[in-house]
């Protein structure tokens, strides 16, 4: 097991190298550069050339690639052409936002998915089961961006229960430390941040969490039904162990592994895939930053964003596999 982890950790830089190369080349293949955006009208002869030289875009593509890789191995993601800011600090600002949103969405997904799955699995073949299964497919079928807008119409416009955008109301003064609002609330002792933050994160988390809950619902449902058929549950029932206890002690424990995997996979997918929710709800996350950078040809930012998202994806998958092995006694004992 240690060997496997080691092999995959070794492979991480290789993956990142390829992702970095891919995005580097893809960006340069796109028409245009940020020069045109930077100075829309050049009235002095030679100014455009000066800007190009300032940004290092006069060097050959391989020279630029060499510089880029050289910086990358020193964990330097470079500087934004358009904003002059350090890409690392931009990632530091946007990544926590995306992780925060992904975690909140995972909470919604897990509660909704497991809740519906347990309920449906407990009464297989009934009307309730059919209904829940339909609902789970329905939720999956809703386009995120559209579902987000509908939630805004209903819960913001009509009911006024939630704010429509952002992470905190404008009345709150708050100087970010980690940029994770909840962690900052603890560090700074600012517990007044918690409720407003929850209100702001609810709609985006519902949008992403509910639409992704279907897989988990099915998995839980099938798991419950399958486990209920197994010998030891039957034995437990025959021994007279009360229903709910069997349910939670045995069934849930067996389903937990699959659930863990789904959560891990979804977490990885949400980091890159939450762009849409970030756009609809004005959440300043890393996905949005990266897409905007592509559209503005802000090479360093787009590269940095893609590399960081990919790194997290790989690490989360690794962590998922590890926790899977750790949680599954059969795998821990080296298989049975």
């Amino acid at each position: 097991m240690g060997g496997e982890v080691f092999r995959r950790l070794i492979f991480l830089p290789v993956t990142l190298f390829f992702v970095a190369t891919l995005v580097f080349l893809a960006l340069r293949a796109l028409p245009g550069s940020s020069i045109e955006l930077l100075g829309s009208q050049f009235t002095t002869a030679g100014l455009k050339e000066q800007l190009i030289a300032d940004l290092g875009l006069d060097k050959s593509i391989w020279e630029q690639y060499g510089i880029f890789l050289g910086e990358l191995v020193r964990f330097d993601l470079g500087r934004s052409f358009l904003t002059g800011k350090d890409v690392s600090s931009m990632v530091g600002e946007t990544l926590p936002v995306t992780i925060e949103l992904a975690v909140a969405s995972l909470v919604v997904m897990t509660i909704a998915g497991i809740g519906m799955g347990l309920l449906a699995g407990a009464f297989p073949g009934t009307l309730a089961d059919g209904l829940l299964r339909t609902v789970s497919v329905l939720l999956f079928s809703l386009p995120w961006f559209w579902f987000g807008i509908v939630l805004i119409i209903v819960f913001v416009l009509w009911l006024g229960w939630f704010p429509a955008f952002g992470r905190l109301p404008s009345s709150v003064d708050y100087e970010a430390v980690t940029n994770f609002v909840l962690i900052d609330a603890i560090i700074l002792g600012r517990f007044d941040l918690v409720v407003p933050w929850l209100k702001h994160v609810t709609l985006p988390a519902l949008t992403v969490g509910l639409t992704t809950s279907g897989v988990l619902m099915r998995l839980t449902r099938v798991g419950v039904i399958e486990t209920a058929k197994t010998d030891y549950i039957r034995t437990a029932r025959m021994k007279g162990v009360p229903g709910p206890r069997v349910f939670f002690r045995h069934i849930l424990r067996n389903v937990a592994l699959g659930i863990l995997t789904v959560i891990g996979v979804q977490f990885g997918a949400m980091l890159g895939g939450s762009v849409i929710a970030e756009v609809v709800f004005g959440y300043p996350g890393i996905g949005r930053m990266t897409v905007d950078a592509v559209l503005n040809r802000d090479y360093a930012v787009a590269q940095g964003g893609a590399i960081v998202i990919a790194a997290f994806y790989v690490l989360i998958n690794l962590a998922t596999d590890l926790s899977y092995r750790w949680a599954d006694p059969r795998l821990r004992r080296g298989g049975r």
Binding site: T15, F18, L22, V23, A26, L30, G272, G273, A306, I309
Partner: peptide, 18 residues
């Protein structure tokens, strides 16, 4: 594996912009 770790929507956007 490497392609899967590349954010898919970003890949699609790169293709469409190109």
């Amino acid at each position: 594996d490497i392609l899967m770790s590349f954010p898919l929507i970003l890949a699609a956007i790169l293709v469409l912009v190109a």
